[in-house]
Amino acid sequence: MADTPDRPRSRSSSHVTLDDVARACGVSPITVSRALRGARNVAPELRARVQAAVDQLGYVPNVAARALASARSSHVAVLIPSLTNQLFVELLEAVQDALSPHGFQSLIGVTHYDPAQEEALLRSYLSQRPAGLLLAGFDRSAAARQMLEQSRAPCVYLMENSNEPGVHSVGFSQQDAGRAIVEHLLQGGRRRIAYAAGQLDPRVMMRLEGYREALRAAGCHDPALELLEPGPTSLALGGRQFEDLLARHPDVDAIFYCNDDLAQGGLLAALRTGVPVPQRVAIAGFNDLGGSDQMLPPLTTVRTPRREIGERAAAMLLALMRGETLVQRRVDLGFELMVRQSS
């Protein structure tokens, strides 16, 4: 039986098209397209009617055709260094929550802190003409920077800030945060403060610079107390670093770990070996990851606004994709020092 305008066509006989949805709603195809993209000039009642027709008919947008017609897709490329780090998972959830009501979906790429992997991901995703990009940090290869420039796709950078003209960023100062937590340890009377780090990505090294600034200002910086390991961070690594530092430098009275998983491992090692925290050695972390406030003792750390970063960056990118000119290109969301019993 042939399809008629008032009868939904069988999914087995042919694909439901944008025209079918438009006929069902009594509007033009371009109005349906605008409603599905979340355009602000479409009334909420009409948007709801379009969505009801989409659900009834089982319409699935042809993303490839839309990209060819408009030179942009409904996808946003989001490149992050890791999915094993809780902070990036929270950031991704915030980005998706902000983008999906406007008809955009995330193309998620994991770079594993490898510029070559990021370059390959960018080449693949840019070939799909994404509507925009969200990228973690500013450290990337010259080839990747050239691809981004030539693509002309709107781009917002996450976790760090830049004053460079034309660059849009949402983050906070990693260096200031590192300095602040070390100053807290200094105010508590600690003088032999170690820095224990893994992964050694640019943000970890910025925290290291903040650590150095605070200790140099206090006249007690000792490069021998910097324990920097390139491998991934973990509870096991943090525990081993704790034992190594106390074995090599028995006078260490505080350890600033670059990430909370390392600091949690350090607290577990202290408990296992009978080293009292904070009486013998204070321990501080970074990022305020889940469980840090439940450690024994609860962990002093820096709370970073990763969900807020995801929300604000997505909002900024949506504005750029609409062609708006933003007065504020650089958003600094700051950080919060969480002082608990470990220090």
Rank of each mutant, 00 (worst) to 15 (best):
R9D: 00
R191Q: 11
L122Y: 07
S169V: 03
E118V: 10
I309K: 03
Q175F: 14
L18S: 03
I283W: 02
L299R: 03
F88W: 08
T273W: 07
L148G: 06
V89S: 15
L46T: 12
N62I: 14
L126E: 10
V16P: 00
A22Y: 01
H221D: 15
A131I: 02
D55F: 09
G310H: 11
G132H: 04
S14K: 15
P101D: 12
L333T: 04
V331Q: 05
P115M: 11
V182T: 14
S141T: 14
A224S: 08
V27G: 02
V32G: 01
L296T: 12
R66D: 04
I181K: 01
V54N: 08
D260Q: 14
A48Q: 12
L185A: 14
T84E: 15
L245F: 12
M159S: 12
A64W: 06
T304R: 07
G219A: 11
Q56A: 15
V302A: 00
S151K: 05
V32H: 01
R203G: 00
L148F: 10
R34Q: 09
N62V: 13
L317M: 05
G132P: 02
P154G: 09
V21F: 05
L299E: 04
P5K: 06
L267G: 02
N41R: 14
A64R: 10
L79A: 12
M147P: 02
A218W: 02
V275P: 04
V78C: 15
G109H: 01
A284V: 11
A313H: 08
Q174F: 00
R179D: 06
G132Q: 06
I255K: 03
Q187G: 15
Q51C: 13
I255T: 07
Y211W: 01
D55T: 13
A35K: 09
E119A: 15
L135S: 01
A35R: 08
E311R: 15
H221L: 15
D222C: 05
L246P: 11
H221G: 11
G132A: 04
Q174P: 00
I193Y: 02
V42L: 12
E149H: 11
S234Q: 07
L267M: 06
R140A: 03
S342G: 10
A180G: 01
I193K: 02
R11I: 10
V63P: 02
I108E: 09
A218M: 03
Q174N: 14
L228Q: 10
Y195H: 15
D97K: 08
N259T: 13
A131N: 05
D332H: 04
A77R: 04
T111P: 07
Q146G: 00
A319K: 13
A131P: 07
I309D: 06
S234P: 08
L185G: 08
Y125K: 07
P81Y: 05
V281F: 08
D288V: 04
